[in-house]
Design a protein around this nucleic acid. Structure first.
Lengths: 138, 138
DNA sequence: TTGCATCTACGAAACTCTTCGTACATTCGA
DNA sequence: TCGAATGTACGAAGAGTTTCGTAGATGCAA
């Protein structure tokens, strides 16, 4: 239960986290390069943001060499969990099913994905049952 | 396609919107009462927030009487859509299926809800097909 | 070795959001 | 009618975020 990120990342911090999750440990220059493709900003702006994130404990940093290398300290999964949880609680009256149907309704999934979800639903629907009951249901 | 809320609501604004969505048109006093159950804050703080939201075009206001009555101008559905869309894009690599399975995995749904989702999946899986194909698949 | 390119550190400005105090208007009961 | 209760308007402080310029350190190529 480490990974304490008490305050949720800002939008700018999220952009940087996403790059680090995707690319792994990176220099400020590398992050800034990728960021530049999306939005214009000065190099020292990215630097400052990453320094602050380091101060906040969101990023770790290897500063043996002149050029420091940063890594994400907070896990993508924990941010996902937090974000999805807040959304369900705040916007979908605590019902994950409401969120699920809203998501599927507005963002089409492929046939393969839909079948995968169905399989997953079977798993969780019958989890906790013994084998006999599972077969009965089938 | 009105309902232009270019900048997404802040957390404080979301709290007020949720109350107005739930309660319908309300006075500042009413909103503040409900808000007080969740967090402590001064009456004029709530007033100011709602005035600013009105300036931003998020709320409409009837000021015929001394005590004004505010209503949400932006639709819950549009905020949901925006929020879910951003989350899928930013945290789930654009895959609604990933979000769905994450949500179901971390926030248990009831048997009834799961069945409802399955039915919904059938609908969208076969939408776009003609009746003949649907029956073949069955 | 020297000088240029690159990097970090840091301060400060510009913004936004949140909070609340104060001033003034309106309503209503005694 | 008068005063208390209740309402709105508004200014400004304080906190957090984002932006960038500048100074100084470091590495590398000529």
């Amino acid at each position: 239960m480490t990974n304490l990120k008490l305050n949720k990342p800002t939008d700018s911090e999220m952009e940087i986290l996403q790059i680090l999750w995707e690319e792994g440990p990176s220099t400020v220059r590398e992050v800034h390069q990728i960021l530049s493709a999306i939005k214009e900003s000065g190099y020292t702006t990215t630097l400052k943001l990453m320094q602050i994130m380091h101060d906040k404990g969101m990023l770790s940093r290897n500063d043996e060499a002149k050029t420091h290398i940063y890594s994400a300290l907070i896990k993508k999964e924990s941010v996902q969990k937090q974000a999805v949880g807040n959304m369900i609680k705040g916007l979908f009256k605590g019902s994950s099913a409401k969120l699920v149907m809203h998501a599927l309704g507005n963002h089409r999934a492929s046939r393969e994905e839909i079948d995968e979800i169905k399989k997953y639903l079977d798993e969780i629907e019958f989890s906790g049952m013994n084998e006999k009951k599972k077969n009965q249901k089938k």
